[in-house]
Design a binder for these strands. Structure first.
Length: 423
RNA sequence: GGAGAGAUGACCGAGUGGCCGAAGGUGCAUGAUUGGAAAUCAUGUGUACGGGCAACCGUACCGAGGGUUCGAAUCCCUCUCUCUCCGCCA
């Protein structure tokens, strides 16, 4: 959410952000609602003041004057009762529009519409030249007995799967490896709730735009989170954080649930796009200073790269263009891991700065040393998401016989197993 | 799921219809005192929104929402959350 005062004073900047992010909300409609809201508020507050004045005079007034004052007060109350629902209606409209206004991308973010406009920042590692025909992860999983997709499809539907045997152990291993990297780098581990109230999703910017991506539990008015970013940021909702506590760096691990509403028919094979996965996520709160936030952003990126380095997976880092970054993000890097089966780099990590967008929505405030209140900045990045990460892991480390040699760093997490072999 | 108790400012806690944005205490800040500190004393100490160039003014907020009333922290209703006991349970 942006400060309404900022929107009033920088309407053109906001308009450009909406256009560049390929969104459709109407700023002029918002500004009109804002004007109407303030006019109605002034009128209502004037009436309330009259009411308060009269109520204060009545007990002091002479007995014979009271009935007249009470009658006047009744009239004022009627006026208030007429204005209140009108204001409530205007505010509903106003708030809904305000929640759809995106944050303004940083100047370095390239303007563009789709993936093709993302800018490559660097490539790390070299895709292996195979001297045999490499298998894709679906074939490898079959050969190694890592996944059951047939069974779950019957009782859980499409995009479901069950990790089995070494596949299940592999997920535990890579997530634990990522956790250890983050803990060694000073992040505080959190295992958060994954069923949350609507306010957490509104607060983190996933609602109302993007509502169709979330699974809901209507009976209890709860939603399943698509990332632990949601509960991790919400951990501090309504809090006033102390400047001395900045930055706060969390590492969360959780199952993540996504409906993949707009992706029907896309990536239906294998483990690339699934409804449920496990993710180790990093979330940072820092002081609202662009230089500090930038520094934290690159630290988060470096953490993710450290995980990929341990897994010996080649990757490239992309700076996402305006059309590819979310409503609240002011800057996003994607890390794309090399997937031989696709013969392409594909997204495995997403590193974002959101400015005070989430803090405003979640009512997370920061008390500065001089006593002033502001909103902290929030950032987040994937550390590892499984099973998607298993795709490059298996495909890059496969051998001609269908076996997979595990990267050294992973071996201790697999209880000394160095190689997965076909049954 | 059943029975009961509760929710007030940074914290503790008083307040059962107007004099309550809210006593008192703690904490915190500033000043006095001191060689310095402690102790003591004095003063101050919420947030949001709106109006105003500003000083400042107004409105709202005592878990949330609704109702009664000229007037609600105080009365009524609904809900949420916390705690205790019972049941169930990984």
């Amino acid at each position: 959410m942006l400060d309404i005062a900022f929107i009033r004073q920088n309407t053109d900047v906001v308009r450009a952000a909406i256009k560049n992010k390929r969104l459709t909300v109407d700023v002029d409609e918002l500004l009109a609602a804002d004007r109407e809201r303030r006019e109605t508020l002034v009128a209502l507050e004037g009436k309330r003041r009259e009411k308060n004045d009269l109520s204060a005079r009545i007990p002091k007034a002479a007995k014979e004057e009271r009935p007249a004052l009470v009658e006047t007060a009744k009239g004022v109350r009627a006026a208030i009762e007429e204005l209140e629902p009108r204001l409530a209606e205007i505010e509903r409209r106003y708030t809904d529009l305000l929640l759809r206004i995106p944050s303004v991308p940083r100047p370095e973010v390239p303007i563009g519409g789709g993936e093709e406009d993302n800018v490559e920042v660097r490539k790390v590692g070299t895709p292996r030249a195979f001297d045999f025909e490499p298998r894709d992860h679906v074939a490898l999983c079959g050969l190694l007995g890592l996944v059951d997709q047939e069974g779950p499809r019957k009782y859980a539907g499409g995009r479901s799967y069950a990790l089995k045997g070494m596949g299940a152990l592999l997920e535990l291993a890579v997530t634990r490896l990522a956790v250890d990297v983050l803990v060694a780098r000073g992040l505080t581990m959190v295992i958060p709730p994954v069923m949350v109230k609507e306010r957490a999703l509104v607060g983190t910017g996933f609602f109302p735009t993007g509502r169709e991506e979330a699974y809901s539990i209507p009976e209890d008015q709860l939603f399943l989170v698509g990332t632990s970013e949601v509960p991790l940021v919400s951990l501090h909702c309504d809090d006033i954080l102390d400047a001395g506590s900045m930055p706060i760096r969390y590492a969360g691990i959780s199952p993540c649930f996504r409906r993949e509403a707009g992706a029907a028919g896309k990536d239906t094979k294998g483990l690339y796009r699934v409804h449920q996965f496990t993710k180790v996520e990093q979330v940072v709160f820092c002081v609202p200073d662009e230089a500090v936030a930038e520094d934290e952003h690159y630290k988060l990126l470096a953490n993710a790269e450290a995980v990929l380095a341990k897994l010996e997976i080649p990757y490239r880092v992309m700076l996402a263009c305006t059309g590819e970054i979310g409503i609240g993000q002011t800057r996003k890097h994607e890390v794309e891991s090399w997937m031989p089966g696709r013969e392409a780099y594909s997204e495995t990590h997403s590193c974002s700065t959101l400015g005070d967008f989430q803090a405003r929505r979640s009512n997370i405030r920061l008390r500065l040393a001089d006593g002033a209140l502001t909103f902290p900045y929030t950032l987040n990045n994937t550390a590892i998401a499984s099973p998607r990460i298993l795709i490059p892991l298996l495909e890059n480390h496969q051998n001609a016989d269908g076996s997979v040699t595990l990267p050294k760093a992973l071996v201790p997490y697999m209880n000394g197993i160095e190689r997965l072999r076909p049954a």
